[in-house]
Design a protein around this nucleic acid. Structure first.
Lengths: 265, 265
DNA sequence: TAGTGGTCTAGACCACCTC
DNA sequence: AGGTGGTCTAGACCACTAC
């Protein structure tokens, strides 16, 4: 697995038996470091379900042997995947596939905090869950064809008994086959945990567009505020492996007593 | 520089002449990796002004020699500093101290983007710059004593000719000695670039609390919107080396045609 | 051609966890 | 005791930039 780019068979390495990735590597001027290729191979294993969320992956030495590279190289690959929150390292134990389940830091995707730093667990109340044909804008954002089937979920979040968030969640129907109000109601825990365990779709990253808007009539009712009340509008697109968009979420947040926390660095 | 923690003088290393950091290291059960200590030493150099923003720092081999460690160790230290946006690596050239000046990505701290992705440079209009005694809340956030001197700047930002942001910026008076309306008016470029070059204070990271609020009378006037209009309220605290807070900024954003962009990962 | 950061290796040892 | 990730080293070579 050495010298895959632009050099004539290196001199001292007892090389041989190239792994599967060899086919994908080009001896062209485009240069891709070995650890990047290993990173891609490991990502394949994650995406294909070879290693599922919460499970342990093979040890560094084991992977090094499998891919015929040094431990340092798979280490660098894992480092980057861990930095991207795809893997979690635990010294003395092993490396694990990240999960939205036991991850006690679920506030990675819900950044609404109370003015006093106390941690109040929130309660979800399902309003609606139905299937329909994707509106043009949603189809565009989910990379679907217009009128492709989608699932629309509407719900409220209550913090400490106070209704604080109204969410409209759009999902591609093809991926979330069999998602019904009943199954949503049954499930305990965060939505993303359910998506991951029940539908094999793991949210990796998301982008949000945040605005201040006036509450319209329907949202005002749900959130129990006056029409025209200032709300935080959060429009999120979430992505899974391969940067494929798999969720559009439009949220309206009441930010009295709560704020959206962001860190710049 | 080897075996600084919990091990009896290693066997093969031709060691000697410990660097300054040795004093700070404890042979106690608390373990601190070598590269973390190197990282601290380099950070000292940045903080003390030995290497100024935009300048190049010594090469990896040079630093390795200076600190009596291997290149790999200083490499890991620099890696983390680069990840934290304190340093910038340029292959073939060297490693440079990050700066708010030439950094074409100044949108690291101003995340307001137009609905159409076009890039419109913004114009700043200074409203006021005066010195006063810190209100209790500001003093607390800036880690000052109440009534310590502070500088208060008020300004507007115009995007494409449209007034979009009203900012109140609070700075510790002791650090920003000699900051006047005149000097602010003269200076071209971002505020943080000025703070860095004129006052030797570099903003490293910041935290923001974001809310939707109704425009009060004075803000409404400045932003040319109706009283009660929904505005994005952004309360930022910025930190410099050593996580010392050096700025409190309260911004009101008009988010019609613009949005606050955030990435979750 | 020389210098810089970037990659890759092989091996030693340490800290942490489990059995 | 044995496994895992974490640190550190020394050395080779590659890619990029300058002169």
């Amino acid at each position: 697995m050495r010298g895959m780019n632009s050099n004539p068979a290196s001199t001292t390495t007892p090389n041989g038996t190239a792994p599967a990735a060899e086919a994908a590597s080009t001896p062209s001027p485009t240069f891709s470091p070995l650890y990047q290729q290993i990173k891609a191979l490991i990502t394949q294993g994650l995406e294909s379900g070879e290693w599922k969320p919460g499970e342990i992956i093979p040890s560094e030495v084991e992977l090094a042997a499998r891919y015929k590279v040094s431990q340092g190289t798979v280490r660098k690959a894992i480092d980057e995947l861990a930095a991207g929150n795809l893997l979690v390292r635990r010294q003395g134990k092993g490396t694990f596939v990240a999960t939205h389940n036991e991850d006690r830091v679920q506030f990675r995707f819900l950044r609404l905090l109370p003015d006093d730093g106390d941690v109040h667990p929130h309660v979800s109340r399902l309003l609606e869950c139905r299937r329909l044909r994707a509106p043009a804008e949603i189809a565009r954002q989910l990379d679907l064809k217009p009128a492709d089937p989608v699932v629309l979920i509407k719900r409220l979040l209550q913090f400490d008994g106070v209704t604080t968030v109204f969410d409209e969640i759009w999902l591609p129907g093809a991926v979330f086959r069999g998602l019904t109000a009943e199954r949503l109601a049954e499930y305990k825990g965060p939505l993303y945990a359910m998506f991951e365990t029940e539908f094999g779709t793991r949210m990796i990253r998301a982008t949000e567009k945040i605005r201040a808007v006036a509450a319209d009539e329907t949202v005002a009712q749900f959130l129990d505020v006056a029409q025209g009340f200032p709300l935080l509008s959060v429009e999120r697109v979430s992505y899974t492996y391969g940067d494929r968009p798999v969720e559009v979420r439009r949220g309206w947040y009441v930010t009295t007593g709560y704020f959206y926390q962001n860190d710049l660095s």
